[in-house]
Write a protein that binds this DNA or RNA. Structure first.
Lengths: 215, 215
DNA sequence: CGCCTGATTGAACAGGTTCAAAACCAGTGG
DNA sequence: CCACTGGTTTTGAACCTGTTCAATCAGGCG
């Protein structure tokens, strides 16, 4: 496991409790922890008790099978919140995809906390259930299309989309191999639906076509 | 849309608000609504604003693609609660699988409500994310094994498991066709892992083997 | 400039789907 | 009680999409 640039443990056990900011507050939370690319933020089985807001960078949440197969359930981009669990244990792994900063908040058990967390939990639940439809019933092209549309929306609906993650990550998110992801990108490019500006950024040329494919 | 045996609308718009029972209370909630097999409890796009607890029977929660492909995200058995949404709109369909009774509760916006709902939402989130691993990374035999183990656990861990739903429902839950589901059942039977007592109930003979296959 | 990792492309393969037919089961009526 | 009937499930065979294995290509960093 990688160590974050500023010790995670010391921050989590920080004895001075900062005043509770609004979970939706776009301003940075305190304290902030930094993780280099690939660093583990928490592991499955670890004790939970904090939650996190991405300041910059990107985070992948995933689970593993015994033989190493991996399923990424969500990516979290700047501004998004993650880390809340049904019980005191983390059921998933969280890793920084790139150099990432996350605001860390210890959980209190207040009613306010519930009121703030519930909308986030419900939104996450809806997203997860929508992703089930993609994995259970859509083919490779539809999966990639849905992924690109989602990423574009989360980045403000611009034509140009930044993909902070590798093909491997995309594959493990969409239940595909890297080869298939790569082939689908090529296919979409040849059809003139997208343009590959470089490995990590694409331009959506035919928004409507992509939209239709992914639903 | 099927009409429930006692009108859903009249129950939902019931002007007398019963005292709020504990969401975890195993005793029947009031009022109770009855639905015959296949009846719609709510539809995607409908206004949300109530939640439900299964008294007896079983419920499927699902989403559709434009061409009719269906993904069931969850089954709810007796005692389980469903129907909470991220906003005022239902994002999924809910249908009775068999003759089913559900307790109906109108939502209030209190802090108590948040505190009661949050654990349910978080549990649902964890379940959905675990199901993502099944759909994204497991093959047909592993999916069915995981499903049977889950159903067995939810029925008290007994050897004999009742499957209230059709092969079609199981397929749409596991992202498989009915033919594949049927073939896997046959394969598991031939291996001596399960016995098919009748179409809707199976006996788990080799619990350990099934367990290992599904993880 | 060269190396090393990640991405792309190619060809053979396999698991699950599709299409089709037979078997089974539950419910109904004689 | 049994036969009929409609729908569901099982079984079979051909097919297809995505995987696997392998080689080439590209790009970032020392």
């Amino acid at each position: 496991m990688h160590a974050p640039t500023s010790s995670r443990i010391s921050l989590l056990s920080h004895s001075v409790q900062p005043s509770l900011p609004d979970a939706f507050d776009p301003a940075p939370l305190q304290p902030v922890s930094f993780f280099p690319a690939g660093a583990e933020i928490y592991a499955q089985g670890e004790k939970a008790g904090a939650f996190y807001q991405v300041e910059f960078g990107a985070v992948r949440i995933y689970r593993l099978l015994a033989d190493g197969r991996r399923q990424i359930s969500t990516f979290h981009l700047a501004g998004e919140t993650f880390g809340f669990e049904a019980d005191a244990t983390h059921h998933f792994f969280a890793e920084a995809i790139n150099a990432t900063a996350v605001g860390v908040l210890r959980l209190t058990t207040g009613a306010d906390m519930s009121r703030q967390l519930l909308p986030l939990a419900l939104k996450g639940l809806t997203r997860a259930q929508e992703h089930l439809l993609v994995l259970g019933r859509q083919n490779a092209i539809e999966r990639v299309a849905a992924f690109l549309v989602d990423m574009a929306e989360r980045q403000g609906g611009l034509r140009q989309v930044e993909l902070p993650m590798s093909r491997m990550d995309i594959g493990d998110y969409l239940g595909l191999t890297i080869e298939t992801v790569s082939r689908v990108f090529t296919r979409l490019k040849d059809k003139g639906v997208i343009r590959l500006l470089n490995l990590r950024s694409i331009e959506i040329v035919k928004q409507d076509v992509l939209q239709t494919m992914g639903e």
